[in-house]
Each structure stands twice: as C-alpha cells, then as structure tokens.
Computed example of a mutant assay.
Amino acid sequence: MNGLTLNIICGGNKGFSLELDCKVSAIGITAIYGPSGSGKSTLLDCIAGLRQAEPGSVIRLNNETWQDASFTTPVWQRHIGYVFQDARLFPHLNVQQNLDYALTRRPRSGNIHLNQVVTWLELDDLLSRSTDTLSAGQKQRVAIGRALLSAPRLLLLDEPLANLDHAARQHCLRCLQRLSQELQLPMLYVSHDIEEVSQLADHLLLLEQGRLVEQGSLLTLCSRLDTRLSHEEQAAAILTARVAQHDAEYGLSELTVDGHTLLVNHLPHAVGQSRRIRIPARDVSVCRHRPLDSSILNILPVSVVEIEDTNAARLLVRLSLGSQYLLARITRKSCVELGLCIGDNIYAQIKSAALLMETTDPA
C-alpha cells in the first residue's frame, strides 16, 4: 500500500512515551497537530531515524521498509528532507552555495531542478547573499529549497514558521502551497497553530500525550463536534469555494460554496480560482427567519445536523451548507429559546471579518 506506515513506540523523558499505529497518505500535506509535549517532533525524529524507536517498531514508506523487527535503515539511506525551526544553513556559504551543496551531494538523481526551486521559493534575489544577511523568513525558504534539492522521498517540516513574524509566515505559506501544487512529494508538517495548519494541510493527525486521538481530512475534522479541535477557542470550519466575480463598486468579491454566495473583501484572484475559507465558530450566529434589515451581508440557509449535548453556558451547533459544514458557537439559552432541533432549516449569519482567505492555488 502506498503511503507511510507507522507502528511506533518510543520512550522519552519523565515517563513520556509515543505510541502510534497508523497509515499516512503519500499525497499532499499531512499536518501533525497537538499541544507542546504531545510527541510531534519525536514522531518526525523517529521517521527520519534521528531517534531510535523501540525494537519491533515499523516505519515503511510505500514498499520500502526503514525499520522493523529485524533491522533499521541508516538516516542517510532514507533520503528524507528535514526542515527545522532554525534554518541551520551553512554560515560560511552564500545562498547559492547552500543550494549547490544539496545538489552535489544528493545520493540519487532527482526531478527537482535548481531553477524550479528558486522560482517556487522566490529566491532569485538572494542567491549571491551571505546567509547572515538574510531575514528569518528568507533563511527558512532557503532551508526548504536545500531540503528539496537533496531529492527527498519525503519532506519533514518541524514548525518551520514558528519564529517568523506574520508577513514572513504568510510568504512562506504561499511558497509551501505552491510546492504542494507543483510536486508529487508527501510532506509531514508539524505545528501547534491551527490557523497555520488550516491554510496548508490536506490531512490531519491529532496527537495528545503521545497518542493519536484523531486522523482524517482537515476539512472533515475541523467541522466535527467530537474532536479536540472543536473545543478550542479558535474552533473553525474550513470550506472550499470558488471566485465567482468581483464587485469593483463596493470593493467586494463574490465566492460560491455549493451554489451559495459569500461576499468578502476584494480578492486579487482570477474568477474561477479555488479558495479555502476559515470561518470561526464564534463568528457564526443563527436565526429562525432571515433578517430583513441587517448589516451582515452573509446570511445563508443551512440545516441543523448536530447539537452538542452539554450543560455548559455555550454549545456548538453543526450546520450543513450543501455538502459542506459550518460550526456555530452559541449560548445554550439561545439554543433552548430558538427550540433548535436536528433537521431544522434555519439561517446562519456570518460576520464578513470572519471570512479569512487561504490560498489553495498559487497566486
């Protein structure tokens, strides 16, 4: 079976133990998400061979076994690209020389060429520069490029944007999205920032205290009520939409989601492009009847799919919008007074500020 097969037990400090048994897709970007200390970096280190999993653990990519009960493949023979929080560039080499280092020492031929990497990661103006003159974001883009030019079978990224400011983080995210579009290269991306993950990942592994608690499609897991994600303050549904048209008079763009229209601030993207939308549960309210006078532009017909069973002051409601889903966090009192029941056809009011645009096509 294609993909990454993991059956790992790996001990750590103070009684910590990573115990994982799953298969990871060989297509797209899989995010490994969880709080600090959940075992995210330990997992990457075991896959890379930098940390030894216990005897009997199994690590296999497609048909190639890197560890099982009988042997362990050395790190250098796994052909993995690894990008850390700190870029770890060679300080005595300029950017071009750092990239050339990977090219001249890669253990196998690859179909990723220098000019492609330079274009995808926007490194053209940096090639002659010393690494100590680069910003943190520039260093990370060079580090990603060097990892790609090593001709990896798998790319591991361990919180590569953790030390970047917002602008640099968004720049790197756009570049990583472009790589995902251009390359048939599986990537594992560690993060504890769900907004970052929302922009990038196709699949999601949720870790907690060294255990896998959920696994699946990002879009599916983000809209379920029974996951850790839905109970975080930043809980949000992720939807996919297409740019339908632009309204120059009012500075808005019209998106379509399963035949429904969403208006957002003007986007610099062509009609027909696919976008990813993150809508926080706290910014969705519900009503029985469509308001006739409201400043909220996005009022959509939805159906109640699920209501959280809780005695807390607030609860979550899962709403279907065609084949996709929204989450609404409302007070339990509101739910009772509205008499909400599963199957009800109601309206969701979405604050326009909540429509955070995430690129799924290269800009």
Rank of each mutant, 00 (worst) to 15 (best):
V305R: 10
Q140W: 01
D132H: 12
V305P: 05
R318N: 05
R174V: 05
Q170R: 09
L255G: 12
N163W: 04
A147S: 02
Y250D: 15
A168F: 02
T42P: 08
T256P: 06
L18H: 10
S17T: 15
R108C: 03
D226Q: 13
I277Y: 05
L205A: 07
A363I: 09
L157I: 03
Q138E: 05
C175N: 01
R169L: 09
L326P: 02
E159T: 09
N345V: 08
I112K: 00
D158H: 04
S135D: 03
G15V: 08
K333A: 14
L6I: 07
L188C: 11
P160N: 04
R332M: 03
T261E: 13
R318Y: 08
E19L: 11
C175D: 00
A143D: 00
E195W: 01
L126I: 01
Q181V: 14
L6R: 03
P35T: 02
L61K: 02
M1W: 12
D158R: 04
S41I: 06
T133E: 05
H192N: 11
I346Y: 06
G39Q: 05
D309Y: 10
L239A: 07
M357C: 13
S320F: 01
S57A: 11
S230C: 07
N265V: 06
N2R: 15
V58T: 08
T42R: 10
P107K: 14
L123D: 00
D100G: 06
H171Y: 03
L161I: 06
L154V: 01
D344R: 10
R288M: 07
G3E: 15
S294Q: 08
S150N: 04
Y250P: 07
I112F: 00
S323K: 15
N298I: 06
V243R: 12
R60S: 13
N311M: 07
L316N: 06
N265L: 10
A237F: 07
L262T: 01
M357T: 09
V197E: 01
Q97G: 01
